[in-house]
Write a protein that binds this DNA or RNA. Sequence first.
DNA 1: TCCCCTGAAAGATATAGACATAAGGTGGAA
DNA 2: TTCCACCTTATGTCTATATCTTTCAGGGGA
Lengths: 229, 229
Amino acid sequence: MSITYREVKADILRQITQGELAPGSAMPNEVDLAASYGCARATVNRAMRELADDGIIERRRKAGTRVRQNPIRQVRLNIPIVGQEIAELGASYRYTLVHSQAEPAPDWLRARMALDRDDRVMHLICMHYADGAPYQHEDRWINLGALPEAEDHDFTDTGPNEWLVSTVPFTDAQISFHAVAADTSLAGYLGCAEGDPLFQTERTTWLEGRTITFVQLTYRRGHRVTMQY
Amino acid sequence: MSITYREVKADILRQITQGELAPGSAMPNEVDLAASYGCARATVNRAMRELADDGIIERRRKAGTRVRQNPIRQVRLNIPIVGQEIAELGASYRYTLVHSQAEPAPDWLRARMALDRDDRVMHLICMHYADGAPYQHEDRWINLGALPEAEDHDFTDTGPNEWLVSTVPFTDAQISFHAVAADTSLAGYLGCAEGDPLFQTERTTWLEGRTITFVQLTYRRGHRVTMQY
DNA sequence: TCCCCTGAAAGATATAGACATAAGGTGGAA
DNA sequence: TTCCACCTTATGTCTATATCTTTCAGGGGA
């Protein structure tokens, strides 16, 4: 076959990284590039589209394509399910349900989850262990108005995350990362000292505009989230 | 024009989220889908390719396409330059160079950056302020073997990050997020108490296999990194 | 001078057809 | 029975061409 879009992409990327195409400079248009590579315009288009998607170049109709002044640096971050995360570490996974109760939503949670005054929630506290050692503390609230089945479901054996992803896959979510100090309770569960700095993830999940669940995931001391780009 | 790949994608996604196509189930092949949508195979292909890229479906030659059992949850995370990050908050940005010295690489850093025994590094400590308040503490090491210009460059007015992205754009990097306790020095710089939990980012950057720089970015107390998907 | 309309440029996308590649499945040989 | 060669099939990609959409730039009118 003739030249592939991967080769075109690689060649353009090479020209950019080796300085033949300076940041900020304009590139030839698709028609000319196709002619110079001796391929169809669609091939060049796909190469350029992917480069634009990667944040390397910037494309605008009529204005043409140029090398970005400062390439956008972005990474893709996988949001794992804790059981899988631990399995990928090569460790054995154990789950425990610590607390499980349906109750009216406290005020702070009503604000976070955009709930009404009389909405009830399922409050679950769970622990996830890797090779027997505490790995993650899960403090989860499920909106019983949106998911009444949660009240009767038995979370003794499998975590709410597993149940949720199989019951309501394809949700929208907002995630945030931050650091917290271990309070007495977290220190007890995670086997660290009170006041220790812990990495915490918060996640709110929606389905078609309705809040499904809010969860705080607190990791054992020293946990890192790592990415490449 | 006839049906677009976006419409095809949206329709397939709708079928999946509304349960018409169950997780794990096989989908019709591209030729059949194209016929049923009354469009070209390339149109269906693009829709399916993007869905696969989004982690919704799984495609294998010959085996066909099926809806993923558990959709891959992933987010794109932009790695901002601190000045831009602060500007986007609508705050004023101020930068200070605290410390700047060329020195032999300490042992722990040689391991991290894969340096030789006699490699020298540029050690920079900087502070970034938002509306006058401490925002981020930057502790950076630049490999002078790979970037000798760094020794003579003046970092008084602009941060090393800005200089690096304009000098060596298009690098590879590994990033990690974690929580640390503020030591005396960090507490002083960031205006928090010793022992406070702080969100920290570590980043190692390479260019063609050579380590360029290693940096620890520690944020003010309460900082969050937020993402949507 | 300012504003709106129009033409043209360049990317975005659709189409039909062809060939490439990977991999599941099957039948025959060992 | 086991295993390998081969056939088939679904996705992957390229070509050539056409149309659509966005947007810049220039001209004309108020």
